[in-house]
Simulated scan of single mutants.
Amino acid sequence: MPEKKILITGASRGLGLAISNALSKEYTLILHATRKESFTNVDPKHHLLCADLSDPTQLNEFCKRLKKEHGDTLYGVINNAGITFDKSLIYQPENEIDKLLQVNLKAPIMICKAVMKQFLLNKRGVIINVSSCVGETGNAFQAVYSATKAGLAALSKSLAREVSALSEEHAIRILSIAPGFIETEMTDTVPEKFRQEYLKAIPANRFGNVNEVADVVAFLLSDKASYINGTNININGGIL
């Protein structure tokens, strides 16, 4: 059976690290972070491919290296890397807006573009774009962030249809997941007042943890999920 390599962006911490741990035994991983120094004790069977995705030049070089070094054996892509600047759009500087769009939306688009041709040649592959519940619900002080996450869900649905139009027989799936309030370093900075407000909207009466999301990703990559395609999977405790 051909080697299966999985690219995980933003793999050095939080959700990306949990996904890496969940997939480490079954797949060969291509681990991304902005800097190599973010990783410690990496299994020698895995690969590091680092770049600052907010820099268009580095993003372009990252995509070129991904195709050149791993294209033939690349099976899956987890577009997980993301950033947020939480403030009212009225006061959001343009450079923050540009960075949010670049990292959260353009980088996944360009990575999808880089791997799609090879996936079509191989007639197999899975892309999972990490969206967010706020891509559907919206959220005050996260207007641009929410827009980028909504964009990832739309990107996934559109590309799934595009693959179908380009190839009659294939095993390529493109979808997105939308975590809710998951305990990570990013959510640790949310003031307690707002944490309690979020909690009231979650029927599960608790916040999620990264391993619960990672387990869903592992399932979606597997053959057991072979008929799940072109959709957005909510992992949010039933958030309203």
Rank of each mutant, 00 (worst) to 15 (best):
V216S: 08
I90R: 03
N41T: 13
A81D: 03
E183D: 11
E136N: 06
F62G: 08
G76S: 01
V77H: 10
Q118L: 07
P179H: 05
E61A: 10
S54E: 00
S38M: 13
R173A: 02
A11F: 01
S226V: 05
P93G: 00
P56N: 03
L59C: 13
S131I: 06
Q196C: 03
F62T: 10
K45L: 10
K99T: 09
G135M: 09
K64S: 05
R124P: 00
E136V: 02
N80L: 02
V126I: 10
R206C: 04
R13P: 01
C112S: 15
F181T: 07
P108I: 02
G237A: 04
K157G: 15
Y227W: 07
L121I: 08
N236Q: 04
I239T: 01
I177H: 00
D86Y: 13
G76T: 02
T84E: 11
A147T: 08
F219R: 02
Y91P: 00
N80A: 06
V190R: 07
K68F: 11
Y27T: 11
T28M: 12
S88Q: 13
V103N: 11
D98A: 14
L155F: 14
K117A: 06
I111K: 08
A33F: 11
N21Y: 02
I6W: 01
N234E: 05
V216R: 03
R35Q: 15
F219Y: 15
K123E: 15
S88P: 00
T57K: 15
K25C: 07
L240H: 11
G125K: 05
L23R: 05
N205L: 13
G14N: 10
E26P: 00
S132Q: 02
G16V: 04
G76E: 14
L15D: 02
D55E: 09
I83P: 01
S88D: 14
K87C: 07
N139V: 08
N60S: 12
V144L: 09
P56M: 05
T28I: 13
Q92W: 00
N209R: 15
N79F: 13
K106R: 12
K5W: 08
I128C: 06
S146P: 00
I30T: 06
N104F: 07
D215M: 12
N104M: 09
A150V: 01
A18R: 04
E94M: 12
C63H: 12
E192F: 09
Y91G: 04
I127R: 12
G180A: 00
F181G: 08
A51Y: 04
T73G: 08
Y27A: 10
K67R: 03
F62K: 10
G138L: 07
T40W: 05
L221R: 02
G135V: 04
S20R: 04
I239P: 00
K106L: 09
L155V: 09
N229Q: 03
A160L: 07
L89V: 13
K64Y: 01
I177W: 05
I239R: 01
D55H: 06
L121P: 02
T9M: 06
Q102T: 06
L31W: 01
T148R: 04
L100P: 04
E37I: 10
K36G: 11
T148K: 02
A171Q: 12
K123D: 08
K106E: 02
E69K: 08
R161F: 11
A204L: 14
F219Q: 03
K36N: 03
A214I: 13
V210A: 15
I111P: 03
I6A: 02
E168D: 14
K4P: 00
